[in-house]
Structure formats: structure tokens, C-alpha cells
Design a protein around this nucleic acid. Sequence first.
RNA 1: GGCGACGUACCCAAGUGGCUAAGGGAGAGGUCUGCAAAACCUCGAUUCAGCGGUUCGAAUCCGCUCGUCGCCUCCA
Length: 494
Amino acid sequence: MKIFNTMTGRKEDFIPIAKDKTGIYACGVTVYDYCHIGHARSAVVFDVIKRYLKHKGLAVKYVRNFTDIDDKIIRRAHEEGVSWDAVAKKYIDEYYVDMDKLGVGRADVEPKATDHIPEMIGVISTLVEKGYAYEVAEGDNKSVYFSVEKFPEYGKLSKKDLKDLLSGARVDVDERKKNPMDFALWKASKEGEPWWESPWGKGRPGWHIECTAMAIKHLGESIDIHGGGADLIFPHHENEIAQSEAYTGKFFARYWVHNGFITIDKEKMSKSLGNFFTIREILEKYDPEVIRLFILSSHYRSPIEFSNEQLRDAESSLDRYYSTLDRIQEFLSHSLDIAQAKAKKASAQTAGELEAALDKFNDRFEEAMDDDFNTAMALGNVFELVREINRFLDSKPCGDTSKLLVERAKDTLHTASSILNLFNRTPEQWNTDLLTSKRIPLTKADIEQKIKDRQSARQDKDWALADSVRKELEEKGILLEDKKDGTGWKVKIV
RNA sequence: GGCGACGUACCCAAGUGGCUAAGGGAGAGGUCUGCAAAACCUCGAUUCAGCGGUUCGAAUCCGCUCGUCGCCUCCA
């Protein structure tokens, strides 16, 4: 299995530190607002990575943190007139609401920064003792900064040179720092801010130190995979490396994995540009699975352009998948009727082709996923198999051998689905859920009643009446499908 | 200014040295159907931003040009 490592800029063979098990640390979110689709991408990508590694037989310990103390949280609390921890709690709860819908599983450990203050203080104290960090008095309290010049490898992840950073620096020169690139490990408390007791008086942790303390506590001093959005490469991950490796004297993470951005009109979606969509805004119009498929339809490192067209494409793909699943179920649930069995045998050719496709599928799926988690390719394979299955079902198959073959196809799809955590509903659920997400003013019972009405019209050969029912439903977004033993319905994808 | 990424059909998107350049959506034609829908079949890039070079062979490697974007400040 190969993973692209930001540190080396290359795909590398994945070899975990310990045999048969692996640890992943992914930087989560700062909880001061609702999550946008960019947060969703990161969460979904690492969710799939975790699931795939488990599928490969590794015991995975996945750690994803919440940053629950930070300037933005404090500011938000002031704006809303509530306590900072109430803000954090609220948005952690909202995070779960969104992510649960998107099929993002819980991490094995979900540490919060404020639960690890003693650990952070421990790391910072050691860094001061070792001479990597220095204290600066601010009133009665002190701040602590990391001295980047003491860590010669500073810049190795983001490929930056300290000299270049300084010449191009847009940061305000801070008199208290020895070097403008030095960053805060511990911030002296200001009036009205939350604080904790420390060897430096009252204060609170800097942003980067929490990940060092929590990753080391929960995964050890050297970990296999550390990841997050590409915007964390600098300075966040660079700083984590500096402080962690200075602290332990060992390498911090073997593979650095970063997901690409979501763009709007080719521009990075970001809070400051205001060009972002929250997950729940999108969920007003689309089923959550649409978002998940949209994300996984591109390689995780590529930028994805966000648009309604893209979401509609993903929706159509899902509908295609569930339609096939429906055909599979229908085929399997019908007992074989003798007349049909006598009629003609399933084309041996299509059966052979489906069998061949199934034989190849698992290997091809894993090959794609083994190649730096290429979910776009893996999904391409899924839809190729879907077409093969449809072809086979079109050939009017019958007999136990056919059933076994279709059973096998169903199982094969199911295995792939569970790794991606997609396509897990029944076609019925998919369609009833679409009634809600598409805001169709009909219930399942309404539709079934209409189908009955139309059925009696059809029995009377009153085609005009039957067609008017079809038309009426279609105008509301419901398509009817006549099959040999009844009429089914589905939500029209426009 | 420094560093980096990307440019594949109408749209999205795989493919990074060699079998017919995956897959999805849209489109055209056909099969099926009371009419439909779904599904399937056929068609659709002699070509991978442009120009040079390396090679028996390149979308894939190298160079240049053009274009787009990102990081260098909080950011998934």
C-alpha cells in the first residue's frame, strides 16, 4: 500500500511502526462555529482512511481532537454573551449532528485540549529546560515561546527556509519574540480570558502544543500517520514537528497526509472570504450521502470545485446505484417460476462476463485504495460492476446458479460499500429519504394510493386516466415504473 | 518576492513510460414499454493547455511558454 507523504513529496510504501497495528492522529476542528463542507471533506477522508486500514487487517487507533480553547472561541463567547466553554460544548454537539449524518464514525479517542493542560505544561517545561523555549514576562504572568532557531530542521515539512519566511513575512514583528517566527507555547492570561495555573502563572496554552501533548499521550512519541487539511501544513504541523521532536528527540510522525481544499469559483472556500457553505445549508437541499459521494468522487489531495452541478451528479450516481440494488433485490426475492425457467436460459455469455467482473473486482478495488486511497478510481470500479450487474439482469436470467451469482454480486458490492461507508441504505429508504430532502409534498402512503388509482384505471384500459396520474405525480417529482408484477415509484432526479 | 500544485471530451473525473485514454452526468440514435421510467446497446477525446527535447515508445520524464490556484497570517 502506498501513501503520499507531504514530508517527502512522494508516494511511499506504508510500513507501520508496529506490525499489525497503526495509529492515526488527525487534526480536528476548532469549535466556535458550524462546520462547513471543507471540514466535512477532511473528516470524511480520514474516516475512509481509518476504515480502509481496518479492512486491511490492521488494528487502528484513530485519534481526532477538538480544539476547545482558542482566541476565536473566546471572541465568540464575548459576542454571544456566554461562557467560552458553553461555546465549545455547543459546537462539539453540532459537529456530531453534522458528521453523524455524513457517516463519519467516531474516532477511537477524541481528546479535548482543555482536558490535557497538565500534559501540555509538562511538555512546555521540558522544552524550557532543554533550551528550546524561553519565557517572557507579561505583567504578573509569563508567556513561553518556542525558539525556531534552536530547531535546525524547522521548515522541513512545508519546505520553507527560515530566511525566506522572514523576508516574505506578513506577520507583525512582535517585540517579545527573539525571532518573528517563534510561536507561543503558553500565553499569559489577559483580562477577561480563561486561564489555568501553571509554572508561568495564570495562562492558557498556545494552539500547536495541544496536538503534541495529545498525540504523544494517546499514540506514543512516534506515530504512523498524522494528517489534516493542507492549510495546516504551515504553520501548525511544522510547529508541531518542531516542538514534538525537540521534546522527544525522536521523529514525530512517519507519514504526513493532507487533504486538498474545496473551492468555489476556483477559490479556496474560507471563512475570511465568506465563500463557504455550512454542511447544514447543503443538507437543506441534498441527502447527506450526496455530500459523502461528492467528496469521495475525487482523489483526496485534489482540489474539488463545489457547485450544485457537482452535487446533482453525485445524486444521480447514487440513484443509479440504488436502482440497481433494487433490481437485485427484486430478482432475488422472486421465487423461480417454472414457465420462466423453461423459457430460456440466461445467456451464458453475460453470466460469464459478470463472473469475470466479480472475480476481478476485489483486487481492482483494493488496488485503487492501496494507491494512496484513490477513492475516485475505486468508485469507478464500483460503477463498472453496477453496469455488469444490470447487463446480467437484462439478460433475463433464471435458475439457482443465476441467483447465486447475483447473491455474490450483492455481497461484493456490500463489502466495498462498507469500506467507503456509502450505499448502505435500502433503495426504499433512499427514495423515502429523498421525499424529505427534496421537499416533495407527498407521503409514501399518498403515492401508493395514487398508484392503486392508476392501477384500476389501467385494468379498465383507461389510458388517459392512468397517464394523468403519472403526469400528476411526475409534476411533483415522482416517477412511476411499471414492472411485471406491479408499479414502483422513485423520486425524480433533475 | 520565496515555495508548491494543477491544466485530460459539453461538465465532473481516473489514468503518471507500452494492451482499445476508467467511471459518472449531459447529448444523439436504437432495444424494451399501452404510454413512460429504469436498464442495456451504439455514437462521442486519433488525443491529454502550447511548443520543443529524451526514448524503439510519453497524457505520463525533462525544459520553456501560457493559464489557473494554493501556502508564506487564523484556516479542514
